[in-house]
């Protein structure tokens, strides 16, 4: 356990997991806060508590599912392809989904249900990323989960601000996910004979995957480059005698 702390590989893995957790933390905190908004005051705290608890529980279950699935032959290949896609998606600008038919939930269990379903969808990429980066180390898995918990509960503006300040962080993250995907590919049983014959593949494949994610991501991002304009929400006027008029814009 202790000698682990001395190896540089260990710290590299820790760094990878923190990066993946940060960038793929999803918007769980935002969904939890927003889903509980329409609840009566008394139930709001309860809803947030259940929501955070449920999200953490779900994250733990999903992580262990992902780990056991990734231990099976061929599924590493699938996992690696998924990771490549997740890495590319990270580099692409946020796309606007068409507005679905969603109604605001005004009762507690409705809100909790929304939170759990949203968590399920938004946790998947994080869980696959962390499971891949942990490479079977239980310590790293638990560490990854622990790091993600405060992000589930509180992160909101932190990640946005980081990306605003250091825009290349998403490219670094995409490349990192590509690298991890490559590491997973070379550990796939299917390719074992090949990799054992050419040891250099241990680093060549991850590097190629990282470059691939960057190249495809940047290419697609350039194609869909639309400048994100700020949206106007409220416009109001107050005259010097205190009269007020307000118009809301959509």
């Amino acid at each position: 356990m202790l000698e682990m702390l001395n190896s540089s590989q260990f710290w590299v893995d820790v760094f990878k997991i923190i990066m993946i957790d940060l960038l793929l933390s999803g918007d769980n905190a935002v969904v939890i806060a927003l889903a509980c908004r329409n609840l009566p005051e008394a139930q709001r705290r309860q809803g947030i508590m259940y929501g955070v608890g449920g999200a953490i529980g779900l994250r733990i279950v999903l992580t262990f599912f992902a780990v056991s699935l990734l231990a099976l032959p061929y599924l590493k290949l699938v996992g690696a392809l998924l990771l490549l896609w997740i890495g590319i998606k990270l580099i692409l600008p946020d796309e606007e989904h068409g507005e679905g038919n969603i109604k605001a939930e005004a009762h507690l269990w409705g809100a909790v249900k929304t939170i759990i379903i949203a968590d399920f969808v938004m946790s998947l990429d994080n869980v696959i990323g962390v499971a891949a980066a942990a490479k079977g180390s239980v310590f790293l898995l638990v560490f990854g989960l622990l790091v993600s918990i405060p992000l589930i509960a509180w992160s909101s503006q932190l990640v946005l601000k980081l990306i605003d300040r250091f825009p290349y962080i998403v490219h670094a993250g995409g490349a990192l996910l590509g690298y991890v995907a490559g590491e997973m590919l070379v550990s796939e049983v299917l390719f074992k004979p090949l990799v054992e014959a050419n040891h250099a593949l241990h680093w060549i494949v991850p590097v190629i995957c990282a470059v691939l994610v960057l190249a495809i991501g940047k290419w697609l991002a350039a194609r869909m480059a639309v400048k994100a304009e700020a949206v106007h929400l409220v416009d109001g006027q107050v005259s010097s005698n205190g009269q007020q008029s307000e118009g809301s814009k959509k």
């Binding site: 969904v31 927003l34 889903a35 908004r37 946020d94 507005e99 946005l160 929400l233």
Partner: peptide, 29 residues
């Protein structure tokens, strides 16, 4: 006042736009 765009495309799959706008309006005000 500028509100960070917290609600990404993913969030919009689960939360209706009115709730999101109410939240921004409350924070902004």
């Amino acid at each position: 006042n500028v509100q960070w765009k917290l609600a990404s495309g993913n969030v919009k799959l689960f939360i209706d736009q009115d709730t999101i706008n109410d939240y921004y309006r409350e924070q902004g005000n």
